[in-house]
């Protein structure tokens, strides 16, 4: 269970939800890693865009 909570905290940090990393993951808080992560996300966006549909909730 502790491992799951640790993974959840890391995921939330990577998602931009939080500023604090859990104990043992401090090494992930580096500017170059953040840049790499942004690059990966941007790559995914560029790779998959162009097939987009609307957001489901946009006209609720």
């Amino acid at each position: 269970m502790k491992t799951l909570i640790w993974i959840k905290a890391v995921c939330e940090f990577m998602q931009g939800c939080g500023t604090a990393l859990p104990v043992g993951a401090g090494h992930l808080d580096r500017a170059w890693l953040r840049g790499l992560w942004w690059g990966a996300l941007l790559g995914a966006v560029i790779l998959f865009c162009g097939q987009s549909s609307r957001f489901i909730y946009i006209d609720f």
């Binding site: 998602q15 931009g16 953040r34 996300l41 995914a44 966006v45 998959f48 097939q51």
Partner: peptide
């Protein structure tokens, strides 16, 4: 801006790379 941009990029990647593919 660091957190905001991260959050926006994560949102766009989720939309394009997962949600739209599941269509």
């Amino acid at each position: 801006w660091e957190l905001g941009i991260t959050r926006i990029l994560v949102g766009l990647a989720k939309k394009f790379a997962i949600a739209d593919l599941l269509s």
